[in-house]
């Protein structure tokens, strides 16, 4: 059986779906018997989700929008 450390090293590839089928199967076997690794896996996945939800979407604030349009008009369209 692969150890926890190996499992954690493979998580990125596991989520990308780029592990070969045998390795993916041994990873899943490990998860069946290792609750700490399941917790690790779930929180690893949730970390990316939480960060994305917190940091997106970035909208350009209205005053910045206006400045950018002015900039384009003054320095690019009529330099």
């Amino acid at each position: 059986m692969i150890c926890c450390k190996e499992c954690i090293d493979l998580l990125c590839d596991y989520f990308e779906g780029t592990l070969n089928p045998d390795t993916a199967a041994s990873l899943e076997d490990h998860f069946k018997d290792c609750p700490p690794c399941v917790s690790f896996l779930e929180t690893y996945r949730q970390t990316s989700d939480l960060c994305r939800k917190t940091l997106t979407p970035v909208e350009i604030p209205e005053p910045v929008q206006i400045k950018l349009r002015e900039f384009v008009k003054n320095y690019i369209q009529s330099p």
Binding site: C4, K5, E6, C34, P36, C37, V38, S39, T43, Q46
Partner: peptide, 20 residues
């Protein structure tokens, strides 16, 4: 970023699952 492992590479610390 990594948890503690024993010499055989198995986890030594309690991992809480806060994902839900």
């Amino acid at each position: 970023g990594l948890p503690n492992f024993n010499h055989a590479g198995f986890q030594n610390e309690k991992i809480s699952d806060w994902s839900k």
